[in-house]
């Protein structure tokens, strides 16, 4: 057991290391000179002043150092929780910019992942026993999973937002509002949250429902189900076993799908101009703000890795087979 977690931690640690390195590299070799763009934005004409400003920024960001030193100090700053200053929102620290955006992304991803998983599993299990439902759920499920996140988002924004006018199609809250802890503002938040949430929820839902339906059918045809039926056990008991055993692979599925769902969430945010990490990435790219880009990527990678680790733990707790396998490996 301990060895299993040590191995997992090592894999996640390595992933993180590679991710950090790649994240450090990509923006640095990306076309576009951030300092030049900053200087340009400052609208200065005198060459001397421009040179001075250049030097100032280069010093601030550490561009004058050799690459390896930049890399090392990058790690040092990272471990201190210092992602640098945003260029786009200069001189706000990247950490602050991300912290402002994270609640929006979490508010989208966490409920849509958990709810789609729970509802999808429940729906799939239910469909597996009702022929009529099965014949409708299955095609709808396949259509939903096959739909790209962006596509469904655009469709919903157009249908429910533009045409029906039921929901706003952009932003986290109305421009006319100031963030406060008032009911009016919370309602406004919810109103803006509904469409991006719905599009994430729906796409994920189809996949879980189909997976669960297939797993349940497989479990109901398994030897233990046959044996129990032969002994006259009520189908209630058999279904309970089947459901539990079918949910287990769905947990692994959750771990595998998490990255995809988060990526989907980022795209969806962009479609709805929702002020989460996805929109931040877009802004960072548009403004060649690679500190912000790095910070956001790292934050996402770290979040997905931690979530995966939690799912690993849950899986080991609920499935005796993995525990038995581990005991065998340890012995």
């Amino acid at each position: 057991m301990r060895r299993y977690f040590r191995r997992k931690l090592l894999v996640y640690g390595l992933t993180f290391f590679v991710a950090v390195t790649v994240n450090w590299m990509i923006p640095r070799f990306m076309p576009g000179d951030p300092v030049a763009s900053m200087v340009a934005r400052a609208n200065m004409t005198q060459p001397q002043a421009v040179a001075a400003m250049r030097a100032y920024y280069n010093d601030l960001f550490g561009f004058d150092q050799p690459l390896w030193q930049q890399y090392l100090s990058f790690w040092g700053a990272l471990l201190r929780g210092d992602f640098g200053l945003s260029i786009w929102l200069f001189p706000t620290p990247v950490g602050t910019v991300i912290a402002d955006a994270v609640p929006y992304t979490l508010a989208l991803v966490v409920p849509s992942v958990l709810l789609s998983w729970v509802v999808g599993n429940w729906f799939g299990a239910y469909a597996a026993r009702r022929r009529v439902l099965d014949n409708t759920v299955l095609p709808i499920g396949y259509i939903l999973t096959a739909t790209p996140y962006m596509w469904l988002a655009v469709l919903l924004a157009w249908g429910l937002g533009v045409v029906a006018g039921l929901f706003p199609v952009a932003g986290g809250y109305s421009f006319s509002m100031q963030p406060t802890w008032s009911w009016a503002f919370l309602l406004d938040l919810l109103h803006h949250w509904a469409l991006p949430f719905l599009s994430l929820f729906l796409v994920a839902l189809g996949g879980w429902a189909i997976g669960m339906r297939n797993m349940i059918i497989y479990e109901l045809e398994s030897d233990y189900a046959n044996y129990l039926s032969a002994l006259g056990a009520p189908s209630r008991l058999i279904r309970r076993y089947a459901f539990r055993n079918a949910v287990l692979p769905q947990i692994t599925g959750l771990a595998l799908q998490l990255g995809v769902i988060v990526a989907g969430a980022l795209v969806t945010e962009i479609v709805f101009a929702y002020p989460g990490l996805g929109s931040l990435i877009l802004k960072a790219i548009q403004n060649s703000d690679f500190f912000l880009l790095q910070g956001t990527f790292l934050f996402i990678v770290l979040g997905v890795l931690i979530a995966n680790f939690i799912i690993d733990i849950v899986y080991v707790v609920v499935d005796p087979r993995t525990r038995a396998g581990m005991a065998g490996a340890d012995a």
Partner: peptide
């Protein structure tokens, strides 16, 4: 037939090794 199963007629199936719910 359920009333008879297990109580009056029972079975050791050919697949006995996989007949128990693994979890």
């Amino acid at each position: 037939m359920n009333d008879f199963r297990f109580r009056r007629v029972s079975l050791i199936p050919q697949y006995a090794m996989s007949a128990l719910n693994p979890t």
